[in-house]
Design a protein around this nucleic acid. Structure first.
Length: 479
RNA sequence: GGGCCCGUAGCUCAGCCGGUAGAGCAGCGGCCUUUUAAGCCGUUGGUCGUGAGUUCAAAUCUCACCGGGCUCACCA
């Protein structure tokens, strides 16, 4: 654990508030109350408590037989009433419980008076219905569980005083979650999406594999890598920009269906849809073609949309998107509408067509010049058996029938190397071992990569990749 | 990298045709034994992102820089 900044670097108001809270903690300690106790046992999470107020009695109706509940959570609001007070406690999913404490219970009331907003507390007692027909837990006991030394920004519950400093919220995600408990739901959905993907492929007999992140050659995609250094071997290494080549080594080794869900690192620009580290799934299927993968992709997207959104018909930032299969399929040349080839075709596609592909569209038959790992089309060797899936003008998946001809692969690598020598910083290195693997023979295979962060954005209706990555890359905080 | 916008109290903001700072909430001190994300009274807290310039005087005008956002470009 690192050493915190001394409080003297804070402004005087914050420093004053923190000093008061620190002294409050010390005061508790001096009276034998541990402000960081961990011996309180909850019987219920707040989300598990009964919610039907109509069957609850008023406070006067409570008896010794009324069920008791022991709950814990963070104090976010206090309504003081003189000799009584209501404490609003928030649980794991942002759900709230009101606690009612009266001066009659001297111990609990004294404990309540010493609590500050942001403190964690534990309380025990029965539920009742207030005069305003609201659920409340009458505290028979109440104690602090954790003292919060640093004040929460503003008043968590007050409308119109929302924290809007997005830099602060991304750097201090915990604070974001405290202030915006609904944002946690995005990440719960993300977890469902990832486990949904995993179960989809597991169910089809794929083997989940974990390949290297540190590599001595850069390849598998067109991107600039992060470099690092291994001291014991005294060699420079790259962080992987793709999982492709290692997964195809596994196909060569005889694992006919493999996938990897994992982090990739690309040393490039950042914007609404790019973060230097991001998550993909790549999967490889022996004896399949890129056309098989289009069908598979449709099934996956449909399943995830239904699981997470409840329907294949979703809204993304005001745009209605239908993830109902089948998706449109068209060759890049058809979409461009001109008999272009090579990089000119790709340039025309990116310039004129890409942004217009709102509904899911498989764009097939990419030129060989931009597809160094894809299999040539049998009828027209200027193109590859490849597709990219576009939705809302963005790329979601990239797939192809894999190039498994070692002679062809060597020629493609050689072309990449000369491109790199000519200044293309995103060109791949010549991966000799990968060529060797192909020389032993890799079965005919199709493979695909899907950007999971963008998929999560789509299915959770988030505009920025930073809203689906827990700790997005930020310039270091200098404060 | 280009364009536009923003940076004032812990948080959200006002003040910006120049005269060295305000509000709400939070905090602190009081009052109130069923409140609604309470109410009432009082109160602490800011070298106004940093630096330079113009001026008798700068939060306010000018320039540079730093940080952030949006947008365009680049980018598989």
């Amino acid at each position: 654990m690192s050493i915190g900044k001394p409080m003297s670097t804070e402004s005087s108001d914050l420093e004053g508030q923190m000093k008061a809270r620190t002294e409050a903690a010390e005061s508790l300690r001096s009276r034998g109350v541990n402000p960081y106790a961990n011996d309180f046992r909850v019987t219920h999470q707040i989300a598990e408590l009964p919610v039907d107020v109509s069957v609850m009695t008023g406070e006067d109706g409570l008896t010794a037989e009324s069920p008791r509940y022991a709950i814990a959570g963070r104090l976010v609001q206090v309504n003081e009433m003189g000799k009584a007070r209501f404490l609003f406690v928030r649980g794991d999913r942002g759900e709230m419980l009101q606690l009612y404490v009266k001066a009659d219970n001297a111990d609990a009331f004294a404990a309540a008076k010493e609590l500050g907003l942001g403190d964690f507390l534990g309380a025990e007692g029965p539920l009742f219905k207030t005069r305003k027909e609201k659920r409340a837990l009458k505290c028979e006991s109440l104690r602090i569980l954790t003292k919060s030394i640093r004040p929460l920004p503003g008043k968590v519950l007050q409308e119109g005083s929302d924290v809007t400093d997005v830099g602060l919220l991304y750097r201090q995600r915990y604070l974001d979650f405290i202030v915006h408990p609904d944002k946690v739901e995005i990440f719960r959905k993300r977890a469902r999406i990832v486990s949904g993907i995993r179960s989809f492929f597991d169910g089809l007999g794929y083997v989940e594999c974990e390949t290297r992140m540190l590599l001595s050659t850069n390849g598998g995609a067109a991107a600039r890598p992060f470099k690092t250094h291994h001291n014991a071997l005294d060699i420079d290494l790259f962080l992987r920009i793709a999982t492709e080549l290692d997964l195809k080594r596994l196909i060569t080794g005889g694992i006919d269906r493999v996938y990897e869900i994992g982090r990739l690192f690309r040393n490039e620009g950042m914007d609404r849809t790019h973060n230097p580290e991001f998550t993909t799934i790549e999967f490889y299927h022996a004896y399949a073609t890129y056309e098989d993968l289009m069908t598979l992709t449709e099934q996956l997207f449909e399943k995830l949309a239904v699981d997470v959104c409840g329907s294949t018909e979703i809204d993304y930032q005001g745009q209605a998107i239908s993830l109902k299969a089948p998706f449109r399929r068209a060759t890049m040349q058809e979409l461009v509408g001109e008999p272009l080839t090579g990089k000119a075709l790709v340039a025309a596609f990116e310039q004129r067509v890409e942004k217009t592909l709102i509904q899911p569209t498989f764009v097939t038959q990419h030129p060989i010049e931009t597809s160094p790992l894809a299999r040539k089309n049998d009828k027209d060797p200027r193109f590859t058996d490849r597709f990219e899936l576009f939705i809302n003008g963005r790329e979601y998946a990239n797939a192809f029938s894999e190039l498994n001809d070692p002679v062809d692969q060597r020629a493609r690598f050689a072309s990449q190397v000369s491109a790199k020598a000519g200044g293309d910083e995103e060109a791949m290195d010549y991966d000799e071992d990968f060529c060797r693997a192909l020389e032993y023979g890799m079965p005919p295979t199709a493979g695909e990569g899907i950007g999971i962060d963008r998929l999560v954005m789509l299915l959770t209706n988030q505009a920025s990749i930073r809203d689906v990555i827990l700790f997005p890359q930020m310039r270091p905080d200098e404060t």
